[in-house]
Design a protein around this nucleic acid. Structure first.
Length: 843
RNA sequence: GCGGAAGUGGCGGAAUUGGCAGACGCGCCAGCCUUAGGAGCUGGUGGCCGAAAGGCCGUAGGGGUUCGAGUCCCUUCUUCCGCACCA
């Protein structure tokens, strides 16, 4: 054993011991409790997306919480009353699947997973207010799902209708859209999902389409552009018009088309309808060759429904034998069935204008339909049919369009839409891609829909005082047949709240996205048993100041949450329009270039990592390895660097802590450095320069990778000034080390607490203030000015802070090295940037 | 096709306002210490030329603006993500 050096008397950095110690202290002190309605401090609501507890937690999960925790801790040091809660998205199909496979009850399975997740989060020391923990599968929570459902039912937002759903014949149940992968079942990769018609519950999100779109303006500063773009795309607003085309020799029959380019209607050379159009059979009746046409139709309908296939499929169609009447020109155009016309969008029929639509152009080329130009570009060479090689889809000036000739596209659209309405064959219309949200699920592990069906009274809401409608515990789960709840007579059979007669309960449960659409409100008042939350508490804490989560939820969860907020506002529960001010989407953690996942077998377990290196090292590495928005490649080699740094921190502080322990310091007090040594000035300066930049990283840039590197640099600089007991007063050294520890604390909180205590502090760092930045202490006394000749680096000089530009130039020109280089040449220009650079331009 | 993001050493990445490209870390090389090292310390590490001093080249490619460009403008290419025959 040779440990006779000076470090021997200090124990080595032992993360396991330190981390357990401080987690216990924080818990005893309830250090991270958020205070409702604290008038003395500004509030800050820091939220990370709640996890679905399943399987083991790996480092891919932890990144989200590490980022959120660093910011939450930082904000506390800045004097904010921080609400930083955590909970569990605990309903969902995997629990049911596990139950079918292993015979465990979904509740048991879920609670086991929650216990595991909670354990890992505590092991990482995240600064949550655990008093506010919620779990969406508990009746205390889902009761309010039901309550909200009833309010929406009363307002007509929740409604029932027959609709097409995804049905997997293998599972014998309905699937959510996200469980359909390219037309196949996610559990049975070779089973095509069928479309069936079923009575289902829906939320009328389309009622808010325009508002959801318009309010994105408010989010432009705080949300990533790509998330907004994805939502905009998803809502898919499109302004146009419906126009009725009559059918020749079929009095009273008309086919309606939807178009955004009514101004091109004089260029229509056909009317195209989808193979699924409801009027198609009627149209085909009685035309010559009907049998052959029906056969073609059948073939077309049987073609794959996979979205990817449809997009790539060649355009195909056939003539129906019928003609339509263009209501503007009176001209007759053939009616074709075309495979690229979508039945579900618009009216399921379009006009074919080859000259001004790419798809129509392609179709017309293949089937030799006429091309007629009716819009000319406003400037440049006029179009000619015989020189056209592609459609002209831009706006321009209308030609060959009867009374509308000469109008601009915009004018023609307005006038033609108005005329169509006047003459009764059309009207302006706005369509959306967004559809109403189907929330019924034929599953067990979800919130029961609080509705009763009575022979006499029909659809009856369960009264509020009978909530929650509890999930029965004894249910057989087979994964087959209809909703599992239907197999539970004691659940199904009930009495009608209105007439008292026999009635049946709704046996579908709610989509689990309902649970997560408003959970963040519940955190403000998690134990309220008379309302989903207290309005005043929500008024105090909302909106969420910062939300952090994965990009995978860019549309569904975040759009539904925005929708719920607006519904809740209209119900009178909240008084804001948008629930989330700022959104941050962190990148994924990868191993071997792909996202960590159990199925890939490339996970780094969070507990294993913490046991090996300590959670502080894991947190630090997670922040250091990449800026938070980028994907992060987990490297077992690179993490050693973060471990080494924390070891270095521990050695650096523990080496000097003993003699500094009794020294009094105050980081905010005035400092007079006029008589300080060069070493002291240098260290204080470095601290304040670092402080400025790290503060900016937290406040503005959100690039914690550079924060970590700045701390490493500062630690290196302090170490480089060894011996630290020479020409350095203990008080200044202590303050330097304290600042270093404080700046480390949001990122590696356990070791920071330990070092803080080592330096003689009795109280936890969790309540400590961020150091006060001082410009005067950060200021350099001398500056290195670079000298360029023709923009190329040729020398450097040291100058004092207050040196004038003229004098700086003079020094540069007389620098011996520079003087040689410019001797005999003509200086045509000089550029001086004070304290930075001199550029001498020679001819 | 539309929309979004990005392209910098062997690797992760830095350069915040147009001003020393490659901070910090990994890896690698050399040395010290050590019975030993998955410990620690010191130094080096973009490419080319050179003994060195130093020089030249270099931020996906090309062009431009500027005293000066990774950064601004134009253009081409590549990669990733989302949407996708939405009329």
């Amino acid at each position: 054993m040779n440990l006779a050096d000076s470090d021997h008397k200090h124990a080595n950095y032992d993360p396991a011991q330190i981390e357990a110690k401080w987690q216990k202290v924080w818990e005893e002190q309830q250090a991270f409790n958020a205070v409702d309605n604290d008038p003395s401090r500004p509030k800050y609501y820091m939220l990370e997306m709640l996890p679905y507890p399943s399987g083991t937690m790996h480092m891919g999960h932890m990144r989200n919480y590490t980022i959120g925790d660093a910011v939450a801790r930082y904000k506390r040091t800045r004097g904010f009353n921080v609400l930083h809660p955590m909970g569990w998205d605990a309903f969902g199909l995997p629990a049911e699947n596990a139950a079918i496979k292993n015979g465990t009850h979904p509740r048991e399975w879920t609670q086991g997973n929650i216990a595991e997740f909670r354990h890992v989060m505590r092991r990482f020391g995240f600064s949550y207010d655990w008093r506010r923990e919620i779990s969406t599968c508990e009746p205390e929570y889902y009761r309010w799902n039901q309550w909200l459902f009833l309010r929406m039912f009363e307002k007509g937002i929740a409604f029932r209708k027959k609709s097409k759903v995804n049905w997997c014949p293998e599972c014998a149940t309905v699937l959510a859209n996200e469980q359909v992968i390219d037309g196949y079942c996610w559990r049975h990769e070779t089973t095509l999902v069928e479309v069936r018609e079923l009575e289902q519950w829906f939320f009328r999100i389309t009622q808010y389409s325009d508002e959801l779109l318009a309010d994105m303006k408010q989010l432009e500063d705080g949300w990533p552009e790509r998330v907004l773009a994805m939502q905009r795309n998803w809502i898919g607003k499109s302004q146009g018009a419906r126009v009725k085309f009559g059918v020749v020799q079929m009095d009273g029959v008309a086919v309606e088309v939807f178009t955004t380019r009514i101004d091109t209607i004089y260029g229509a050379s056909a009317l195209l309808i989808s193979a699924g159009h409801p009027k198609l059979d009627e149209l085909l009746t009685g035309v010559p060759g009907q049998g052959a046409l029906n056969a073609q139709l059948k073939t077309m309908r049987q073609k794959s429904v996979r979205a990817a296939d449809i997009a790539l499929a060649e355009k195909e169609g056939f003539f129906t034998g019928r003609f339509a009447v263009n209501p503007f020109s009176g001209g007759h155009v053939p009616i074709w069935v075309a495979n690229f016309v979508l039945a579900e969008y618009g009216t399921g029929a379009v006009m074919c204008v080859p000259a001004h639509d790419e798809r129509d152009y392609e179709f017309a080329e293949k089937y030799h339909l006429p091309v007629k130009i009716v819009v000319q570009p406003k400037t440049g060479v006029p179009l000619r049919v015989d020189r056209m090689s592609e459609a002209f889809t831009e706006y321009g000036r209308v030609v060959d369009s009867g009374p509308y000739d000469g109008l601009t596209t915009e004018q023609a659209q307005e006038k033609m839409t108005a005329d169509a309405k006047l003459k009764g064959f059309g009207a302006g219309e706005t369509t959306y891609r967004l559809k109403d949200w189907g929330v019924s699920r034929q599953r067990y592990w979800g919130t029961p829909i609080p509705i009763v069906y009575c022979e006499k009274d029909g659809i009856v809401a369960v009264p509020d005082d009978q909530l929650p409608v509890r999930l029965p515990e004894n249910v057989t789960l087979t994964g087959q047949g209809q909703s599992p709840l239907a197999g539970s007579p004691e659940f199904v059979n009930t009495t009608c709240p209105k007439c008292g007669g026999p009635a049946r309960r709704e046996t579908d449960t709610m989509d689990t996205f309902v649970d997560s659409s408003w959970y963040f409100y519940r955190y403000t008042d998690p134990h309220n048993s008379s309302a989903p939350f207290d309005k005043e508490k929500v008024r105090y804490w909302f909106p969420i100041d910062q939300y952090v989560g994965g990009i995978t939820h860019a549309i569904l969860h975040l759009l539904y949450s925005r929708f719920f907020c607006k519904v809740m506002r209209d119900i009178g529960l909240v008084n804001h329009n948008e629930p989330i001010s700022r959104l941050f989407t962190q990148g994924m953690v990868q191993k071997g270039g792909v996202a960590m996942s159990k199925s890939r077998g490339n996970v780094v377990g969070a507990i294993e990592m913490a046991d090996k290196y300590g959670c502080d090292t894991g947190r630090l590495y997670t922040l250091f390895a990449a800026p938070p928005e980028k994907d992060l490649e987990w490297s077992e080699e690179a993490i050693e660097g973060s471990a080494r740094f924390l070891n270095k921190m521990y050695r650096l502080v523990s080496k000097h802590a003993e003699r500094l322990r009794g020294i009094q310091t105050d980081l905010t007090q005035q400092t007079d450095l006029t008589s300080a040594t060069a070493k002291e000035k240098l260290l204080v300066r470095k601290v304040h320069q670092t402080l400025k930049r790290i503060t900016n990283d937290f406040e503005v840039r959100w690039h914690f990778n550079t924060s970590v590197s700045l701390l490493m640099t500062l630690a290196n600089e302090i170490h480089a000034q060894e011996p630290l007991d020479v020409e350095l007063s203990p008080m200044i050294l202590k303050r330097v080390l304290e600042a270093l520890v404080l700046m480390l604390s949001p990122m590696a909180p356990h070791i920071a607490e330990e070092l803080w205590q080592m330096l003689g502090h009795q109280t936890s760092l969790a309540r400590e203030k961020w150091p006060q930045y001082r410009e005067d202490l950060a200021r350099e006394e001398q500056f290195e000015v670079i000298i360029q000749i023709n923009g190329r680096l040729r020398g450097k000089i040291l100058v004092e802070d207050d040196l004038s530009e003229d004098e700086t130039l003079n020094r540069a020109l007389t620098d011996p090295r520079i003087a040689v280089l410019i001797a005999g040449k003509q200086v045509t220009k000089t550029v001086v940037v004070s304290r930075k650079l001199v550029n001498i331009v020679l001819r």
